[in-house]
Design a protein around this nucleic acid. Structure first.
Length: 575
RNA sequence: CGGGAUGUAGCGCAGCUUGGUAGCGCACUUCGCUUGGGACGAAGGGGUCGCACGUUCGAAUCGUGUCAUCCCGACCA
């Protein structure tokens, strides 16, 4: 391709509305352009990259025995009503009506549609297992799209769905996909970590996420997930799912008397601990949450933080948030108190579910709110002064230096970009939608399903996050829009132009994806653009051509060497 | 949805306090000159100043409303 004809506009400055580096670079280097909030045009260079990623995904999925199909982007509400998700999938589901007033939605994911396909097409266990996938645009009306391609509303996704006879079959299908995913990301030039995660709105039991770790980048960190991992064994998990061994701390408050004492203006654990001159580990913290509209009181030791997803899962909820002050007021009123946040305790509360984290179980002679402002109960003990809640669960956020449940070594935390996700769905959809097959024993059984997603556009953006420098993008070879760019330094030097054209034509003839910068620009412009756009290799034809030498540059490490044109061609052909 | 900020040419910005009919850099067009790291000179084209209503002889500038965008929290590939 000739640069003079290539549809690309590079910008001399970064766009003002971009925050993370992949967004800044992709816009500046002319790969993408925003159409509207969270929705981007993929310009020719970007589309080449996306097709590369898609093809890697396609090859590995096919090799893993999956079959590609394409489902509609617009879906009828009926299917979603069958699965029960029409009412629980929140505002991310883009709903619309057709001319007859019939309710539809833009596909954010395709469990319902694929289940309806399986329901119609699979009658017998003999047809199983089967894995079907598609690569397609998805639309999720995200609350806050941001970070360019990393969290758009419309994005390209590969979604696959497996159907098995039984759990062992699912385990096998899941394993095959996990391996395919490892191959895919490796081929894309991305190091990923497979971590345990919460299964969220899609549902199901087991799930893992593939994270591109980005902690090394201190500038505007694009990693939206905290990943905890063990420094010794292989354990790693998203913070919304991570567990750890209870850490050993002082849990005896050593108060001589049990009494309610004045603790003025101690709204936070920190203030209370300072005021009483005790460690925060002997305080029981009380937090009121609203889960699916119902009130929940969560008790946790003063030094720890509640993990909201874990808490929500205790009640199988879909939505969780901390209660507002007016809601706390309402609870207090119902229970006959008037305490504000900071002085709340479980004793005497009405109309609320109570759950305690494991950390509070071992507390002795501890401090806890008693629903009286500016007062706390000190020297409390479970079963004597306050009832230990019946519901006890792990609802705490893991912290760095907690111990691994598998091997006892220390856990560390890092940031990650989630580029892929695999779930064991089980029968969640097949049961709800009555999708069954006839098994060996002649009985009707629901499919055992799994689902497997990869953010294609996000993967490309993640590659930019991981591979760039101050001059621009450094595409991994496998997903670069072009392999090599030939740059004649001066378009007025006949020899340079002639040699550049020769190199270009030879590479073209060898089916190499090659660009030639034939624009009548000054050298600086052409070299800067080549770096910005991030083509993996550059062959610069300059003055040294009189000695039959060109400059061969490897963008990945910015190394250069002077070699002959033929050697340069040879190097490219031997990649 | 809550908190903060911003909307002026394709991109980056100034002008707004103290109203007087819009400007700079990049990009674009033409000519000259230049060609190893985003040159230079000359001449051009392009904006109903987000939108609406109001105040005023007169509004980018003041007021009210509205829409959009960006950042911080709850969603997720």
């Amino acid at each position: 391709m000739r640069m003079s004809k290539l549809f690309v506009q590079t910008l001399r400055e970064f766009p003002a509305d971009a925050e993370v580096i992949s967004h800044k670079l992709l816009v500046r280097a002319g790969y993408i352009r925003k159409l509207t909030n969270g929705v981007y045009n993929f310009l020719p260079l970007m589309w080449r990259v996306l097709k590369k990623v898609e093809n890697i995904v396609r090859e590995e999925m096919d090799a893993a025995g999956a079959q590609e199909l394409l489902m509609p982007f617009v879906q009828p509400s009926e299917l979603w009503q069958e699965s029960g998700r029409w009412d629980v999938y929140g505002k991310e589901l883009m709903r619309l009506k057709d001319r007859h007033g019939r309710e539809m939605c833009l596909g954010p994911t395709h469990e319902e549609v694929i289940t309806s396909i399986a329901r119609e097409g699979i009658r017998s266990y003999k047809q199983l297992p089967v894995n079907l996938y598609q690569i397609q645009s998805k639309f999720r009306d995200e609350i806050r799209p941001r970070f360019g391609l990393l969290r758009g509303r419309e994005f390209i996704m590969k979604d696959a769905y497996s159907f098995d006879v039984d759990e062992e079959g699912l385990d096998k299908s899941y394993e095959i996909m996990a391996q395919a995913y490892k191959n895919i990301f490796k081929r894309c030039g991305l190091e990923t970590k497979m971590v345990q995660s919460d299964s969220g709105a899609i549902g199901g039991s087991v799930s893992h996420e593939f994270m591109v770790l980005v902690n090394e980048e201190s500038e505007n960190n694009a990693g939206e997930n905290d990943v905890f991992y063990c420094t010794k064994c292989g354990y790693s998990a998203n913070s919304n799912h991570a567990v750890s061994i209870l850490n050993e701390v002082a849990t005896d408050g050593k108060f001589e008397k049990t009494e309610i004492i004045d603790t003025p203006n101690t709204h936070s654990i920190e203030e209370l601990s300072k005021f009483l001159d005790i460690p925060s580990t002997v305080i029981c913290k009380s937090l009121i949450y609203v889960i699916d509209g119902k009130y929940v009181l969560a008790l946790i030791r003063g030094d720890r933080t509640v993990e909201e997803t874990k808490l929500m899962n205790v009640f199988a909820g879909n939505d969780i948030r901390i209660a507002r002050n007016d809601e706390i007021e309402e609870i207090m009123k119902i229970s006959g108190f008037n305490a504000v946040a900071g002085f709340i305790g479980p004793k005497g509360l009405k109309n609320i579910e109570i759950v305690a984290d494991e950390t509070v179980k071992g507390l002795k002679n501890f401090v806890i709110g008693c629903n009286q402002n500016d007062k706390h109960l000190v020297g409390a003990n479970w079963g004597i002064d306050v009832e230990l809640p019946q519901k006890i669960a792990d609802i705490r956020l893991v912290e760095e230096n907690d111990k691994c449940v598998d091997c006892g070594a220390e856990l560390k935390v890092t940031k990650g970009i989630e580029v892929g996700n695999i779930f064991k769905l089980g029968t969640k959809y097949s049961k709800a939608m009555n999708a069954t097959f006839t098994d060996k024993d002649g009985k009707e059984k629901p499919f055992i399903m799994g689902c497997y997603g990869i953010g294609i556009s996000r993967t490309a953006a993640a590659a930019v996050e991981r591979h760039h420098d101050e001059y621009g993008i450094k595409w991994p070879l496998a997903i670069a829009p072009y392999t090599v760019i030939v740059v004649p330094v001066s378009d007025q030097d006949e020899t340079q132009m002639k040699v550049a054209e020769e190199i270009y034509n030879k590479l073209l003839a060898a089916n190499v994806e090659v660009l030639i910068d034939d624009r009548s620009e000054r050298a600086g412009v052409k070299l800067k653009d080549a770096d910005l756009i991030g083509i993996p290799y550059r062959i610069t034809v300059g003055k040294t051509i009189k000695d039959n030498l060109v400059e061969f540059k490897t963008r990945a490490n910015n190394s250069v060497e002077a070699i002959t044109p033929d050697e340069a061609i040879e190097k490219i052909l031997s990649l």
